[in-house]
């Protein structure tokens, strides 16, 4: 399929990283993770448990077009109320498996900055704030970060502020998937998305690129994945993160 866009690849890549039976969370402004979780639940992770900031367990949203991830439409079909506070408690007691998070800057150790570009006290750019990331990334079993841009401003050698650090396992970008190496706790190239070459990744990343021992070619997106993606997100809300 040559007409697939980066949003399709990123969403499919994130869905594939969810294992069956895992308890999975995403935060605000996260259409692609929200759709990826539903995709995974249709395919290989039917027993994944979905908890979201909208406050529900196992919601099955029918519409992702809302601009607020706290919107009730994202809690549609839920089995039980589950507040953000419940999610923090779940993570604190070691029972949250996956959290989808992002950062304005991500470094080679998988740490993130959502606080400020420049100094914290006199910021050149004041960023939104870390939200729940500094409580979740240190406590969740697997942090999966995603970026809609892949350049040296986003993937940096050194963060201006370490808003959150901890258990990042994967980073997904429009060019590549990185996985943290157990040897040195640094992100290594795990896979290239079909549209990217390794030179693009090296040129556009602020930290050194090495291949992960599990490096492999990104398995092509299947017809089944595309079919479910269209079924879950017919309006293409996943593309909105790129507009």
């Amino acid at each position: 399929m040559s007409n697939l866009k980066p949003a399709d690849y990123i969403t499919v890549a994130m869905a594939r990283l969810i294992n069956d039976g895992e308890r999975v969370f995403h935060g605000v402004a996260s259409p692609m993770p929200a759709i990826a979780i539903q995709l995974a639940k249709k395919l290989h992770a039917k027993n994944a448990v979905y908890v979201s900031i909208a406050g529900g367990v196992d919601a099955v949203p029918t519409d992702y077009s809302s601009v607020s991830t706290a919107d009730a439409s994202l809690a549609e079909g839920a089995l039980a109320p589950f507040t953000l506070a419940d999610i923090f408690d779940l993570s604190a007691r070691g029972a949250l498996d996956v959290a989808f998070l992002s950062g304005a800057q991500i470094d080679g150790a998988g740490r993130l900055n959502l606080s400020a570009i420049g100094s914290f006290e006199k910021p050149k750019v004041r960023l939104p704030g870390g939200a729940g990331s500094a409580a979740l990334l240190p406590t969740v079993k697997r942090g999966i970060l995603w970026k809609t841009t892949h350049d040296k401003r986003a993937l940096v050698d050194k963060l201006d502020v370490v808003t959150a650090s901890g258990n990042t396992e994967f980073v997904v970008t429009p060019l590549a998937i990185f996985k943290k190496s157990e040897q040195d706790n640094q992100l290594k190239l795990y896979s290239l998305l079909p549209t990217a070459k390794i030179e693009d990744v090296i040129e556009n990343t602020g930290f050194p690129i090495e291949k992960h021992q599990e490096f492999h070619e990104f398995p092509r997106v299947t017809d089944e994945e595309i079919q479910y993606l269209e079924e879950i997100d017919p309006k293409g809300v996943r593309y909105s993160e790129f507009s």
Partner: peptide, 20 residues
């Protein structure tokens, strides 16, 4: 905690300008 962004609408220019 979280305040300078408008979720998917991006960062708030007036709030940023106030801090910067």
């Amino acid at each position: 905690a979280y305040g300078f962004g408008d979720e998917v609408r991006g960062l708030s220019r007036p709030a940023r300008a106030a801090a910067e």
